[in-house]
C-alpha cells in the first residue's frame, strides 16, 4: 500500500502494536530497551515507582545514546534497587543522602563540564519526600543557578520507604501513619499543599512537566523533550504505591489514569515559566471513582464519612479542570455531570 495507514484499533494509547513501523514504536515496546532498572529489584508487587523509573530512564537513555548518569535520593527507589552488593541499575548511578540529590547532581554536571564531557547528561531523582521536603533547598538552588540537570520526582504522595509518613505532597484527607483517620478532620489536613511543578515554574527554568505512569507515550515524549534543553529541568511523575495507598497491586496504572481523568492530577508542560500544553481529560470521572479503591481514603465513604471532605476534594479537581482547561469538546462526560468545556 502506498499511503501509510493510520492505526485505528488502539490509537496511540497502548504501549506498541504489531502493525507499527519501527520508528513509531515506544521505547518500552522495543525488545532491546535499556531496562535501566532490571529485574530482581525488591519493590513491592505492582510498584508504580519502579515502573515510572524504568519508563523515564529508558527514554532518557534512548534520547542520549546511552549517555546518562543518575543521582538518586534516599527512598524506596534507592533502597529496593541496591541492597549491597546487588544493583538493579544498568547505568552509572550514585547515591549519597536523602536531601542532597540535586546538589550532588549539580556537582556531577559541573565535573563533566570541566572535563569537556558535556555529551554525558545528568539526571537527579527522588521521591516526593526527598524532593518537596528535605531536598527542596538544594533543588531550588539547582533551579535558580539553572544547572544542567533533569530532576525527576517520583511522587507517591508520602514517605513510603520508612512506612508511610505524610509529606508536603500528601493529598488532603489521606490517611498516613502520621495523619490517622481520626477526629473531626480525619487524615491529612486541607492545607495549601506544596505544588512543586508550579514552584519550579516560578523559577523560570527552561522546562517543567508533569506525567503519570498511565500514559507512557506522553511520559516518553516529555523525557525526550527535556533532553533537548540545557539547564535545569523538572519532571514530576505520579507513581501510585499499592502499599502506602492501600490499593490492589494490579490497579497501579488504573489509579494513575483515574487521578488524571478526575482532574486531581493535571498533566501539563511548561517552558520558561509558562504553561505550553495540557493533556485534556478523555473520560471525565468523579473523584470518588479514583478515591474509593484506595484504603487511605476509606474513611471518606461509608456511614461514618464526613461528606464535606469529599466535596472539598471534588472542588480541588474542579479548580484544576478550570485552571488548566482540562475538559474540551472531545471529553466524554459522566451522564450526570455538567462541566464548562474549556
Amino acid at each position: 500500500m502506498s499511503t501509510p495507514l493510520k492505526f485505528y484499533q488502539v490509537g496511540s494509547f497502548a504501549v506498541g502494536n504489531r502493525l507499527l513501523a519501527e520508528e513509531q514504536l515506544s521505547e518500552q515496546s522495543r525488545p532491546g530497551r535499556t531496562n535501566s532498572l532490571t529485574s530482581g529489584h525488591r519493590a513491592c508487587q505492582g510498584c508504580g515507582e519502579a515502573l515510572g523509573a524504568r519508563y523515564a530512564l529508558d527514554a532518557a537513555m534512548a534520547a542520549t545514546d546511552g549517555k546518562i548518569v543518575a543521582v538518586n535520593a534516599t527512598g524506596c527507589l534507592e533502597v529496593f534497587s541496591t541492597p549491597y552488593p546487588e544493583t538493579s541499575w544498568r547505568l552509572p548511578w550514585l547515591h549519597s543522602l536523602f536531601g542532597n540529590a540535586a546538589a550532588v547532581a549539580t556537582g556531577v554536571s559541573a565535573a563533566l563540564r570541566a572535563q569537556g564531557k558535556t555529551d554525558i547528561r545528568v539526571i537527579a531523582q527522588g521521591g516526593d519526600g526527598g524532593t518537596v521536603d528535605i531536598g527542596f533547598g538544594p533543588l531550588s538552588g539547582m533551579f535558580e543557578r539553572n544547572d544542567d540537570v533533569l530532576y525527576i520526582c517520583y511522587d507517591n504522595e508520602a514517605y513510603m520507604n520508612t512506612g508511610v509518613q505524610r509529606s508536603g505532597a500528601t493529598p488532603p484527607a489521606a490517611r498516613t501513619n502520621t495523619t490517622h483517620a481520626v477526629g473531626a478532620n480525619p487524615g491529612a489536613s486541607f492545607s495549601q499543599g506544596k505544588n512543586l511543578p508550579v514552584i519550579a515554574m516560578a523559577h523560570g527554568i527552561p522546562y517543567v512537566a508533569t506525567a503519570t505512569v498511565a500514559d507512557l507515550h506522553d511520559l516518553e515524549e516529555k523525557v525526550k523533550k527535556a533532553m533537548t534543553f540545557r539547564g535545569a529541568r523538572y519532571l514530576h511523575i505520579l507513581v501510585p504505591c499499592p502499599l502506602g495507598w492501600g490499593s490492589r497491586s494490579e490497579e497501579t496504572i488504573q489509579l494513575a489514569r483515574l487521578a488524571k481523568e478526575s482532574g486531581l492530577f493535571p498533566v501539563f508542560e511548561a517552558e520558561y515559566g509558562e504553561v505550553t500544553e495540557t493533556k485534556p481529560i478523555r473520560r471525565l470521572v468523579k473523584v470518588d471513582e479514583y478515591l474509593k479503591p484506595q484504603k487511605r481514603f476509606a474513611h471518606l465513604f461509608g456511614p461514618k464519612a464526613h461528606p464535606e471532605q469529599l466535596i472539598a476534594i471534588q472542588a480541588i479537581a474542579d479548580r484544576n479542570i478550570a485552571k488548566y482547561k482540562l475538559v474540551n469538546e472531545a471529553t466524554q462526560l459522566p451522564a450526570d455531570q455538567e462541566v464548562s468545556r474549556g
Partner: peptide, 9 residues
C-alpha cells in the same frame, strides 16, 4: 493482538 502492553507495563 500484539499491543505490547503486557511487555511495557
Amino acid at each position: 493482538f500484539g499491543c505490547d502492553n503486557c511487555f511495557g507495563v
